[in-house]
């Protein structure tokens, strides 16, 4: 192979490998502009999850760019036609220790930094607010392919004539710690509200509590995130977050309607 041809080949391949970190970072920078980034977050714990994502993202980004650039440079530099032999080494004990210990420490840091946010979302449920695990605001009953919502009667029972049942639409108050009880009638479903950064599978035979505190009134998508059959793609719901006082009057009105029907 002529040396010019060899150089061109090296150059093309090097550019190809170089494009990985460059385009890789560029698409992440541009993602928000293209609408390919996190939706806004409207729950109290949402920002802490986004923050943890960002912390890991920066670590990942530095490692990604660093290792890819080294790879690109080594490829370009050491694919040169060279009469001498390669560096004869079988490794370096100190280096091995360094690049085992540093990532180990970083990874332990990552692991521990996750624990608080996870406990907040999934382990320590609110006990001081109006709604608790024992006395949730509502029961969500997932089934192929809809969400049914039940508000308890004044005594907190989910059975009986005074229970309000609504399909698809979940109405909750803003700025309130809301606890829901998640159930499934048939197969696995998953309760996913992107703007709250909340996801939890609904499992038949289990009652799983979830909680959130919405920070902004509005209508948000509720998505089923676990394959539940042919209609999985259209198992959509809506979350209506109402200001606290509006919610109270909404609920009162629902009760009125219920009695009016009787």
């Amino acid at each position: 192979m002529s040396s010019l041809k060899h150089f061109l080949l090296r150059a093309v391949i090097t550019l190809l490998f170089l494009a990985v970190p460059i385009l890789g970072v560029w698409t992440f920078v541009k993602a928000e502009e293209w609408g390919l980034w996190f939706p806004p977050t409207y729950s109290t714990y949402g920002p802490s999850i986004d923050f943890l994502f960002d912390v890991i993202m920066w670590m990942v980004a530095v490692t990604f760019v660093g290792t890819e650039l080294l790879l690109v440079w080594f490829f370009f530099r050491y694919s040169k036609k060279d009469a001498t032999r390669a560096t004869y080494t079988h490794g370096n004990h100190t280096l091995e220790m360094v690049w085992t210990a540093i990532p180990a420490l970083l990874l332990i840091f990552v692991a521990f930094s996750q624990m608080k946010a996870w406990s907040t979302v999934k382990i320590n449920f609110p006990e001081d607010g109006p709604y608790t695990v024992a006395k949730p605001l509502m029961e969500i009953y997932a089934s192929q392919f809809d969400w049914r919502v039940r508000y308890p009667d004044a005594q907190g029972n989910f059975e009986g004539a005074d229970v309000i049942e609504v399909p698809y639409d979940i109405t909750v108050p803003a700025d309130t710690k809301v606890v829901l009880r998640l159930k499934s009638r048939d197969v696995l479903h998953s309760f996913f509200v992107p703007v709250f950064r909340l996801k939890q599978d609904a499992v038949p035979g289990m009652e799983i509590p979830v909680w959130f505190e919405a920070t902004r009134p509005g209508d948000y998508d509720l998505i089923c995130a676990e394959l539940c059959g042919w209609g999985h793609y259209k198992m959509a719901g809506k979350i209506h977050v109402l200001p606290k006082d509006e919610f109270a009057s909404w609920l009162a009105k629902q009760r009125e309607n219920l009695y009016a029907k009787d």
Binding site: S48, V60, F64, T67, W118, R197, K199
Partner: peptide
């Protein structure tokens, strides 16, 4: 490298929620 690094997000439980 890409496949390995993105795994760290998935392993981290709070990030995995989303």
């Amino acid at each position: 490298i890409i496949g390995g690094l993105s795994g760290i997000w998935m392993a981290s439980t709070p990030v995995d929620i989303y």
